[in-house]
Design a protein around this nucleic acid. Sequence first.
DNA 1: TATGAATGAGCATTCATTCAT
DNA 2: TATGAATGAATGCTCATTCAT
Lengths: 215, 215, 215, 215
Amino acid sequence: MSTPPSSRLLATDARLPPTAAPPEGTRRRILETALQLFASRGYHDTSIRDLATALELRPSALYAHFAAKDHVLAELVRIGHEAHFEALETAFQAAKPTPADQVRALVHAHTRVHAEHPQLALVVNEEFYALSPALAAPAQALRDRANAMLIDAIRRGMAQGQFNPLHPEITAAAIVGMGSRIPHWFEPAGPIAVETLAATHAELALRMLGSVATA
Amino acid sequence: MSTPPSSRLLATDARLPPTAAPPEGTRRRILETALQLFASRGYHDTSIRDLATALELRPSALYAHFAAKDHVLAELVRIGHEAHFEALETAFQAAKPTPADQVRALVHAHTRVHAEHPQLALVVNEEFYALSPALAAPAQALRDRANAMLIDAIRRGMAQGQFNPLHPEITAAAIVGMGSRIPHWFEPAGPIAVETLAATHAELALRMLGSVATA
Amino acid sequence: MSTPPSSRLLATDARLPPTAAPPEGTRRRILETALQLFASRGYHDTSIRDLATALELRPSALYAHFAAKDHVLAELVRIGHEAHFEALETAFQAAKPTPADQVRALVHAHTRVHAEHPQLALVVNEEFYALSPALAAPAQALRDRANAMLIDAIRRGMAQGQFNPLHPEITAAAIVGMGSRIPHWFEPAGPIAVETLAATHAELALRMLGSVATA
Amino acid sequence: MSTPPSSRLLATDARLPPTAAPPEGTRRRILETALQLFASRGYHDTSIRDLATALELRPSALYAHFAAKDHVLAELVRIGHEAHFEALETAFQAAKPTPADQVRALVHAHTRVHAEHPQLALVVNEEFYALSPALAAPAQALRDRANAMLIDAIRRGMAQGQFNPLHPEITAAAIVGMGSRIPHWFEPAGPIAVETLAATHAELALRMLGSVATA
DNA sequence: TATGAATGAGCATTCATTCAT
DNA sequence: TATGAATGAATGCTCATTCAT
């Protein structure tokens, strides 16, 4: 028998993004607490009992709010993807219509969402695979649309001679990946401000793309 | 009751790196099979019975080779870290002693290891947290040393005026993170060659650092 | 492979003493059935499955009532010690305040408890060691207090010249031991009445002490 | 999860009586080590692995010496009963042919055996029930013959008007029981000498029988 | 004699879930 | 909405024992 594992992520409070969030009440409390637990110990290592204990509720009480354990995860994944997609869409629409500004806006928003909601980002990115295809489908659709926005901007930048990536697919994957890694090292209460991180990631993306405006 | 989740990673064979690998025999077969299962379904969603079934062995037989389930994971994590560290050290020593060449060599090696052993990379990066601190300690030490090699090269490049990163910490995290993301999107049997990926990541890293030689 | 062992004790019903007993319900049924099984086959040779089968319950149902197998034993040991201690205290208070009468009352009560609850006596005396120190502590404290009552009466009898034991410690151990042995040979449904046994043990104790009143 | 239980008996070395003992060698070492473990933790709580570990042997090695786990216990029980019976027989034959002297001799020997071999006495008396009837039979026969020797002496003493027990069966059980209790409280290295204990128990027996010589 | 690897049954316990209240 | 009691399947692991070497 071994000592219990260390936690994956120790952020103090697991907030749900205001938009796309469910109303106040027990259902919301369940989601917030599940977010905390799934982020720190993983979906499969969190039992319904653990969740109920943290909520000061009996396990059976949860079934008045969610049909099954994986529906709780599915709802968190849905919320995370919707908040992410809305943030990207809003940023994109507010950006000047040049590829560089659009990429900057998209990466900035992408980074903010990950830095401001690290637990949700972790659960969305790393526990996603625990969902059955049916439950994962809506989220996957949003994910594909978000990726398409970035890739489209990159293509236009290349077509206009503004971007000069070494390899567009690899570069796009690397840019998106910067966001996914945030919960693993970035501390919201640490020395780096979220805005600094977002701005830096945006400029890094342009450097990676060989943007003529930046080079 | 939901349909079973889709697999996280569907690579055909889970190879162990030749160096730092255990000798042939049942112990080795257990590690290879566990690697496959842990990579595709996660440590917590793989039972000893699943592992035994895949090995055509009885569950109790595993305990003649490993003291407990988490010792299997710990061994995989150890092997992964040792292979990674050795690859980086070898590449570093073979590189010309300029910061740019050293960064290029380190990122190239880092990328190769992740692309050639995606299951091991996934388990090492994403199931690491399931280990107790005691079992995780040796791997953590190697990880810290590997990170230090890259950060040291970056610092020297900055001191010599060769690198001009927007923010060294954020940039270092982004460079290292490119490797960690590989198993999530890169397919060894796909259209991009490992060598292309490694070379591209290396050049991307120099762009991110604002390397004068590349800019 | 050998034939199964014979039972240690085959009394028909395992009753719990009315005082210090838990209320009716499943928890009580578990204790009564566990008492029967622990007495006849021993704690370590009784599995949770055996217990559940005898109760016509599934093993997992027991865990709604007791945290672990050893908590069932600990509760039985607690009940046994409390009933024993209460019986001794009551008998002591009702006795005339002479050492001889007090010893007679204590040994009489001690004997009755063992003869009327042989399964509980057996479990308390012979499975006690299977408990961890923490779970055994409360019972041990009561045991010490009960022993002290007898030893104190013996000392006073000696001081008053009423008892003339060959060796007080050995004699006290022998007197107490008469009770512990009861479940091993005495049959409540047999030819000797409980009252006869208790009265005889009381007089035997006085003989052993060389009581002047009896000699 | 509970802390491990305390040991039932903590005597330093578990010796086998010289008579009826097996020859030197591994078989003997197994018996001695098993005696120690069975006495301190009980037969059912001692695994073949525990035994092998204590012997610095592999579990499978034990099967070259004993057919099964319960054969080890059966052999210990046999040795214990033979040593006990021989001691009683020798003492009886050396005693003067009066009932009082015979009882004195029998109780003296009975006590010595229990005090000098407390682990064996414990295992013989308390783990006996773990044996199947077939394996227990030879020991049971010796036990019955030993009891008969004492009861016979008591009957003769009564017939000759030398004993005046309150109740012969109860008194006989109490006398025999003094021996069985010894391992539970008597410490060979403690302040009471074995000879003192044996002599005291012998005189206590005569007091209990209302022996005219002693009264 | 002793070993290492394996077996098949069994262990205590936990799992997600149900259901009458 | 929430509970207490229960379920049936599964969990990681240990058991006594076997057997080829």
